[in-house]
């Protein structure tokens, strides 16, 4: 039965390929697919022709089971198409239109065929509708999946971007943390910092949390673990920019910071310089009257 219905649709496709293809492409153009500017008419033509061919082959070989082996090439082609459209920024309906707009040309072809009985027409309509719906949904599913992959990739990129480790001086690193620190991000930060310590042979790392709005128990623990891990590797950590509320949270959590903490990054940097045997020295005295005349004249204070 299914095989019969499949071959009915198959012969419908093969007998009318010459009319179905242009009609289908025309419908897709009408739906505005070319206006997106993301695909050329040639590409659209090639994709449509290719799919029609694969659909025909699948129907002739394996009936109407779209999950079967016969549909493998057609599904593969649809998956590629959905994936590339998802990445190019097509909307879900623009993507699904590819399949759904094939319905009308198929039904038109059916109508033109006056050798068929009413039952045959009804059953072919039903089979092809079910078939195209399944393939359309498949397209959407792949589209959705590809979008999720894009999101995951972007999240990873953001995570990496948002945790830069900067070198302040020979042997002194700073990690300016900005935004909420969840466990996963802290994990990335921690690995990143420790690896940079190895790569740059840094003795001291300053973790600046000025830009961190809240520190919960877990985050505080992660920070302390980072400090402990850095110590195991032979580097010291300083924490700077602890805001009053965060200091309170830490005290309430009973977290004892076995680490030097300073109010500002500048203070921490001064400590780091001192610990590595360096000092910042003023080389020129800046005095008000020594400024160039133009500027001092304009200040008016």
């Amino acid at each position: 039965m299914a095989a019969q219905a499949g071959s009915d649709v198959a012969s419908l496709v093969s007998n009318n390929e010459k009319t179905i293809l242009p009609e289908w492409v025309e419908l897709q153009k009408k739906a505005g697919i070319l206006h997106t500017g993301r695909i050329s008419e040639g590409e659209l033509q090639a994709q449509s022709k290719n799919f029609l061919h694969l659909l025909h082959e699948a129907l002739t070989q394996g009936g109407t089971d779209t999950t079967g082996a016969a549909f493998e090439p057609a599904r593969g082609m649809l998956a590629d198409l959905s994936r590339s459209r998802a990445q190019q920024g097509f909307s879900p309906s623009e993507t699904a239109t590819f399949i759904f707009s094939l319905k009308r040309p198929l039904f038109n072809a059916l109508n033109r065929d006056n050798t068929l009985s009413a039952e045959q027409i009804a059953s072919t309509v039903w089979t092809s509708t079910a078939l195209l719906d399944e393939l359309g949904l498949f397209t959407l599913e792949i589209f959705q999946k590809s979008r999720e992959e894009v999101i995951v990739r972007q999240q990873r990129e953001i995570a990496e971007l948002s945790t830069p480790v900067v070198k302040l001086w020979e042997g002194i690193l700073a990690l300016p943390l900005i935004g909420t620190l969840d466990s996963q991000r802290t994990q990335v930060v921690m690995e990143n910092l420790l690896q940079t310590i190895v790569d740059s042979e840094a003795e001291i790392a300053i973790i600046d949390i000025t830009g961190v709005p809240t520190v919960d128990t877990l985050t505080a623990q992660h920070l302390l673990k980072t400090v402990a891990a850095a110590r195991l590797m032979g580097a010291d950590c300083l924490i700077s920019g602890i805001r009053p509320q965060i200091a309170q949270t830490m005290v309430h959590l009973g977290v004892e910071l076995n680490v030097i903490s300073k109010a500002s990054l500048a203070d921490a940097f001064a400590v780091a310089l001192r610990q590595t045997g360096r000092a910042v020295v003023k080389t020129k005295r800046i005095e008000g009257f020594a400024l160039p005349e133009k500027k001092s004249g304009g200040q008016g204070a």
Partner: peptide, 28 residues
């Protein structure tokens, strides 16, 4: 002085609950 501990090893030791507070460490 224990030297050259790898980052992954350091993270794991801390997670394990061993902070080796009595041991001095250096990068190399």
């Amino acid at each position: 002085v224990v030297v050259g501990m790898r980052p992954a090893v350091a993270i794991t030791l801390v997670e394990l609950g061993l902070s080796l507070t009595g041991v001095k460490t250096a990068l190399n």
